[in-house]
Computed example of a mutant assay.
Amino acid sequence: MTPAELHNDSIVIDGLVIAKWNRELFEDMRKGGLTAANCTVSVWEGFQGTVNNIVATNALLAESSDLVLPVQTTADIRRAKEEGKTGIIYGFQNAHAFEDQIGYVEVFKRLGVGIVQMCYNTQNLVGTGCYERDGGLSGFGREIVAEMNRVGVMCDLSHVGERTSTEVIEASEKPVCYSHCLPSGLKDHPRNKSDEELKFIADKGGFVGVTMFTPFLRAGVNATIDDYVEAIAYVMNIVGEDAIGIGTDFTQGQDHNFFEWLTHDKGYARRLTRFGEIINPKGIRTIGEFGNLPEALLRGGFSESQVRKIMGENWMRVLKDVWGE
């Protein structure tokens, strides 16, 4: 089987996309052969702002129903594959939209939200992000984790502080994930995860999606698709071939104002970080170039079965564990 045939035959899941929502993006997802993607609908927004985002995105999905379909179950992802469409999973990068209401977890689940990151870089009512002193998972946060387990929403820890992450991993009865991260063993950065953190989440039944966001890759903006494969190999060596997948963190189509909003606490307060130039690795600059990844993985020494697992099979299994269907 050629790399192109392998890509076309595989279930391809991107564990994190925070790109600009429009038909052009959906067309690129089809060009790249994406079966499904976890697409961010909330970062700093509260309950009402997040509902507004979902309403707007629902309308976009309806207008492009020839290209995309909403996902609530893994059966929906399989249907997307059969119909030649991309399944859209709604995800949060911050539990802030739950505000102080545990009942909002189920409300958002019914609106299609399947993955929620507990904190985005800073403190919220649940716990602490990776850019400030980590106070750990709050008592309220434990209740939120339990409710996410109950209704079937996956806990994401990509931008979460180490102590809070450890306590979520220990508190959750369902698998949790780093949907989009890189190893600090290749580049020391507050957003990257240590070998110990990667091993701990995998040992507890969790999952790691590897990002290609170049500010966190060893080669930075000079990175190529082979540098991304190096990072995947590094992580897989720690977590094993069944606990790893893709979470690109594609920001396709976003402008300067978006990154300013993203990199300030609450979207407007203190500056948390500077990304510098935002450019994806050469060879996979856009979502439309996703088809280049299986060939790069095979070239990097991965077997065909490992490529299938990394491209999406592992995500399917862990999502079914969490969602229950």
Score class of each variant (00 low, 15 high):
residue 51 V to G: 01
residue 35 T to V: 02
residue 100 D to L: 06
residue 43 V to D: 11
residue 94 N to C: 09
residue 50 T to F: 07
residue 89 I to W: 09
residue 38 N to W: 06
residue 88 I to F: 13
residue 101 Q to L: 10
residue 86 T to P: 04
residue 42 S to L: 05
residue 34 L to C: 02
residue 39 C to L: 15
residue 56 A to E: 15
residue 100 D to Y: 08
residue 50 T to I: 02
residue 43 V to G: 08
residue 30 R to G: 06
residue 101 Q to F: 11
residue 119 C to V: 11
residue 108 F to W: 07
residue 117 Q to A: 05
residue 123 Q to E: 14
residue 57 T to K: 11
residue 55 V to L: 12
residue 49 G to L: 04
residue 74 T to Q: 01
residue 107 V to M: 13
residue 36 A to F: 07
residue 34 L to E: 06
residue 31 K to P: 01
residue 111 L to A: 10
residue 96 H to F: 11
residue 98 F to G: 01
residue 49 G to D: 08
residue 61 L to N: 05
residue 113 V to G: 07
residue 53 N to T: 10
residue 77 I to D: 07
residue 110 R to I: 03
residue 113 V to K: 05
residue 69 L to P: 05
residue 123 Q to N: 14
residue 106 E to F: 03
residue 78 R to E: 15
residue 48 Q to S: 13
residue 91 G to C: 12
residue 52 N to C: 04
residue 87 G to S: 10
residue 107 V to C: 09
residue 31 K to L: 12
residue 62 A to F: 05
residue 103 G to R: 01
residue 42 S to T: 14
residue 104 Y to N: 11
residue 51 V to Y: 06
residue 104 Y to W: 09
residue 89 I to D: 00
residue 86 T to S: 12
residue 32 G to D: 13
residue 27 E to P: 05
residue 93 Q to D: 13
residue 65 S to N: 15
residue 44 W to I: 06
residue 62 A to P: 00
residue 27 E to M: 02
residue 41 V to N: 03
residue 73 T to L: 07
residue 112 G to K: 10
residue 55 V to S: 10
residue 73 T to P: 08
residue 24 E to M: 04
residue 89 I to V: 11
residue 40 T to F: 02
residue 42 S to Y: 07
residue 75 A to P: 00
residue 70 P to Y: 13
residue 71 V to R: 04
residue 119 C to S: 15
residue 42 S to N: 15
residue 66 D to W: 05
residue 58 N to T: 09
residue 77 I to S: 03
residue 28 D to K: 15
residue 86 T to Y: 07
residue 49 G to C: 05
residue 58 N to F: 10
residue 60 L to T: 06
residue 68 V to N: 10
residue 112 G to D: 09
residue 115 I to T: 14
residue 47 F to L: 13
residue 118 M to T: 11
residue 59 A to Q: 13
residue 53 N to F: 00
residue 54 I to G: 07
residue 104 Y to D: 03
residue 56 A to T: 10
residue 58 N to Q: 14
